[in-house]
Computed example of a mutant assay.
Amino acid sequence: MRIQMPGSSLAPRTCIVCCATFLGGPSAKYCPDCRIERRRETDRQHKARKRAGKSIIIGQTVGRCEKCGKEFIYTAGAQKYCPDCSEEAIKEKDRQSGRGWLKRAVEKHGRQYADDRNADRRVGRTTCIDCGAPLAPGHSANKDYCPACQRLHLRYARYRTDCKRAKRPREPVSYSAWKEGNR
Score class of each variant (00 low, 15 high):
residue 114 A to C: 13
residue 158 R to V: 08
residue 27 S to F: 12
residue 126 T to H: 02
residue 142 N to H: 14
residue 166 A to D: 03
residue 157 A to N: 12
residue 91 K to I: 11
residue 59 G to A: 05
residue 96 Q to N: 13
residue 46 H to P: 00
residue 9 S to T: 09
residue 178 W to R: 02
residue 22 F to E: 10
residue 151 R to W: 09
residue 114 A to T: 00
residue 132 G to E: 02
residue 120 D to R: 15
residue 121 R to I: 12
residue 143 K to I: 13
residue 75 T to W: 00
residue 52 A to F: 02
residue 151 R to I: 12
residue 80 K to H: 07
residue 133 A to W: 03
residue 159 Y to L: 05
residue 30 Y to V: 10
residue 37 E to D: 05
residue 92 E to D: 12
residue 144 D to W: 05
residue 175 Y to G: 03
residue 144 D to T: 03
residue 172 P to L: 06
residue 27 S to G: 06
residue 9 S to P: 07
residue 60 Q to S: 14
residue 130 D to S: 10
residue 132 G to S: 06
residue 125 R to L: 07
residue 104 R to T: 10
residue 61 T to D: 00
residue 119 A to W: 14
residue 103 K to Q: 14
residue 104 R to S: 12
residue 1 M to W: 06
residue 106 V to P: 08
residue 35 R to N: 10
residue 87 E to C: 04
residue 148 A to H: 06
residue 119 A to S: 15
residue 52 A to H: 04
residue 63 G to H: 11
residue 25 G to F: 09
residue 178 W to P: 06
residue 68 C to H: 10
residue 105 A to M: 15
residue 78 A to F: 06
residue 99 R to G: 15
residue 116 D to G: 14
residue 34 C to T: 02
residue 100 G to N: 14
residue 85 C to N: 02
residue 127 T to G: 00
residue 9 S to Q: 12
residue 167 K to T: 08
residue 105 A to E: 15
residue 133 A to L: 07
residue 122 R to G: 00
residue 91 K to Q: 13
residue 60 Q to R: 15
residue 160 R to A: 07
residue 117 R to L: 08
residue 21 T to K: 11
residue 44 R to H: 02
residue 182 N to P: 01
residue 52 A to P: 02
residue 109 H to N: 15
residue 27 S to P: 02
residue 57 I to C: 01
residue 81 Y to E: 02
residue 150 Q to P: 01
residue 161 T to L: 09
residue 129 I to D: 11
residue 118 N to Q: 15
residue 19 C to D: 14
residue 137 P to I: 10
residue 88 E to I: 11
residue 2 R to K: 11
residue 172 P to W: 03
residue 26 P to F: 01
residue 66 E to V: 01
residue 109 H to S: 15
residue 130 D to A: 11
residue 40 R to W: 04
residue 22 F to Y: 13
residue 141 A to L: 07
residue 58 I to D: 00
residue 102 L to N: 00
residue 154 L to E: 14
residue 96 Q to T: 13
residue 117 R to A: 15
residue 17 V to N: 12
residue 56 I to R: 00
residue 142 N to T: 14
residue 168 R to C: 01
residue 122 R to L: 03
residue 174 S to N: 05
residue 122 R to Y: 06
residue 174 S to R: 08
residue 167 K to R: 06
residue 44 R to Q: 04
residue 85 C to D: 08
residue 34 C to G: 04
residue 10 L to M: 08
residue 107 E to Y: 09
residue 81 Y to H: 12
residue 179 K to W: 03
residue 153 H to T: 06
residue 143 K to L: 13
